[in-house]
Design a protein around this nucleic acid. Structure first.
Length: 561
DNA sequence: GCCGTTTTCGGCCCGACTGTTTTCAGTCG
């Protein structure tokens, strides 16, 4: 059983964490973490690479290449085994406690014998933590509270929850404010909210105190609050310094480290306030991010690409990929109506499409099948098509007659081919038997991909963020099959799904697989999710030509022939 | 552990805030 990229990345990350607890050099820890990120975001199986090819990856040298090779072969490596023998693995979760870092974990372990969350809670309750030099009662109670609520805060938010919290904060801030962080980068899950504002700190802090659950830190330059149970960081900036501040707070962390390294190579020092010329001592400030990029000799990098996954090198050469944007989207390729479990009528959907300036919307009601109420059988699908034709006679936005058909447990579809043949486009999705093993699930989906009537595979991993994990499907094989058959993979734009993940979008794009963006809308407001799908496509380095729904109607339907 | 038209050794982004401190270490982003 070959290790997946993510499994290998996870082992590297674990080694990094064990090294952290062991008090190892933080740069060594970072090397493992960076390597884990690189391996986790390769577009292709790590097992296919030789040690020489591994060493060619930035941040991976001889030593790591050897260990990665060993991990691919055996699932572990001697370094990891050595560390596990020397370190209680229960210490690793303690690194995630807010306010607790590697130094603290190590001291709790070596000086108090703490080996896991339970023994930490016991030590704190017995007031043994405050006895440590440099620790006090406050620190002890903070640690205790963190340990007692461990696990509840670690899960990331979905995008809609993050947007809602950001809106509450922006409304309270008495001045202009901008969203930064992973929300601005278009990530599919969000850890915390980051906001930059030019509003005055004192007044803003007072306003935030009124709406926040609690204040985490409070300062003149930076304030952190808890809002609806989640952390939010607010940075104060002068208008003249907005460029560097937005750049800094947007991240990613890995991207910031790269940019600051590039500044250093050019005899400059980059921070959130400006660019210091080391020679002259002059500090240049920038009201916009574009100015900063220019001063570093780079073309501006769109937020969605800022992950240090190759975009920095491209930007230095002045040639970033042309990314798809919302304006290029001519229609929505996944919308439910009241004919199945949606709330909108067909004329409503056509109206909404017209308001958005769409050329077309693909109606994809559920087919009758397992678990879906009001699914369409062949007869109702036929009647719906006639209704669509009627609505289209006086609609500016053309409704396309489609279906979202179930991929049954054995790969067969929940409607006969004759019914599918009559559709403009067919979306096929997994809605049952999510727990199948990787091989069964993969073969099941490949049967559907190879069905000549299936045009798009809907929400390919079926995950629901925070509620249902992705299926065990082997996405490498799915992408290969989609490439071979010309079947498109969906980028499901619903904030609850955001499925495919950006790494697979990029991999699919590189293999020439078509991608479609669909909102999976069931009600009016769901149609607004298109922008999340576009952001995800951009994170996958997609240009307009990679996305089916940038095509004019005639070209879209021609692709189906 | 990685990396090099400054270096094969000695760096590795840079700054804000807190708690427990009399000047700073640790954590965080």
């Amino acid at each position: 059983m070959e290790m997946t990229n993510r499994q290998v990345a996870r082992v590297l990350e674990e080694i990094g964490q064990l090294l952290e607890v062991q008090g190892e050099n933080r740069f060594k820890v970072r090397a493992y973490m960076a390597a884990a990120d690189r391996i986790g975001h390769l577009t292709g199986p790590v097992g296919d690479l030789t040690e020489e090819e591994l060493e060619a990856i930035p941040g991976i040298g001889r030593a790591l290449a050897g260990k990665i090779h060993q991990i691919v072969q055996t699932g572990t490596c001697t370094e990891r085994e050595r560390l596990i023998d020397a370190t209680p693995p229960g210490l690793i979760p303690l690194l995630d406690l807010p306010g607790v870092g590697p130094k603290t974990v190590r001291r709790l372990w070596t000086e108090l014998g703490v080996e896991d969350t339970d023994s930490l809670i016991a030590a704190a309750r017995n007031r043994r933590v405050r006895a440590l030099k440099g620790f006090g009662a406050k620190k002890e109670s903070d640690i205790l509270r963190a340990a007692e609520t461990a696990g509840k805060m670690t899960e990331r938010m979905d995008v809609s929850g993050a947007k809602r919290r950001a809106a509450v904060l922006m409304a309270a801030i008495p001045g202009e404010a901008w969203v930064a962080g992973s929300l601005r980068r278009g990530r599919s899950t969000i850890g915390d909210i980051d906001i930059v504002t030019t509003a005055p700190p004192g007044e803003t802090n007072r306003a935030l105190r009124r709406i926040a659950d609690s204040m985490i830190d409070e300062g003149e330059r930076k304030t952190s609050v808890r809002i609806e149970g989640r952390r939010a960081d607010i940075r104060y900036a002068d208008t003249a310094e907005l460029g560097t501040m937005l750049l800094y707070l947007t991240g990613s962390k890995a991207f910031n480290i790269r940019l600051r390294g590039i500044a250093a190579e050019q005899g400059m020092r980059l921070n959130e306030y400006g660019l210091l010329m080391r020679e002259s001592g002059e500090v240049r400030t920038f009201p916009t991010e574009e100015g900063v990029f220019g001063a570093l000799g780079m073309v501006p990098v769109p937020p969605e690409l800022r992950e240090d996954r190759g975009e920095v090198e491209y930007a230095l050469e002045g040639r970033l990929p042309d990314l798809v944007d919302a304006g290029a989207i001519r229609g929505d390729l996944h919308v439910h109506s009241e004919w199945s479990d949606g709330t909108l009528s067909l004329p409503d959907i056509a109206d909404e499409g017209e308001k958005k300036g769409y050329e077309y919307i693909l109606i994809t009601d559920h087919a009758a099948g397992i678990g879906v109420t009001h699914g369409l059988d062949a007869a109702r699908l036929e009647r719906q098509r006639h209704e669509i034709e009627r609505v289209n006679r006086n609609a500016a936005c053309t409704l396309l007659a489609g279906i979202e058909v179930d991929i049954l447990a054995d790969g067969h579809l929940s409607l006969p081919d004759t019914a599918l043949k009559a559709c403009d486009l067919v979306v096929a999705s997994v809605h049952t038997a999510f727990g199948q093993d990787a091989d069964t699930m993969t073969r099941r989906m490949i049967v559907a991909i190879e069905n000549e009537h299936v045009d798009i595979i809907g929400h390919p991993t079926a995950r629901l963020i925070g509620r249902r994990p992705p299926t065990a499907v082997d996405m490498d094989r799915i992408i290969d099959a989609a490439a071979a058959t010309g079947t498109a993979l969906e980028i499901n734009a619903s904030p609850a799904r955001l499925d495919l993940d950006d790494i697979y979008i990029r991999q699919a794009k590189e293999q020439g697989v078509n991608l479609s963006i669909g909102t999976d809308a069931h009600r009016r407001s769901d149609l607004e999710a298109m922008r999340y799908g576009v952001a995800l496509a951009r994170r996958g380095w997609c240009g307009p030509s990679d996305i089916l729904n940038t095509r004019p109607l005639s070209a879209l339907l021609r692709a189906d022939e």
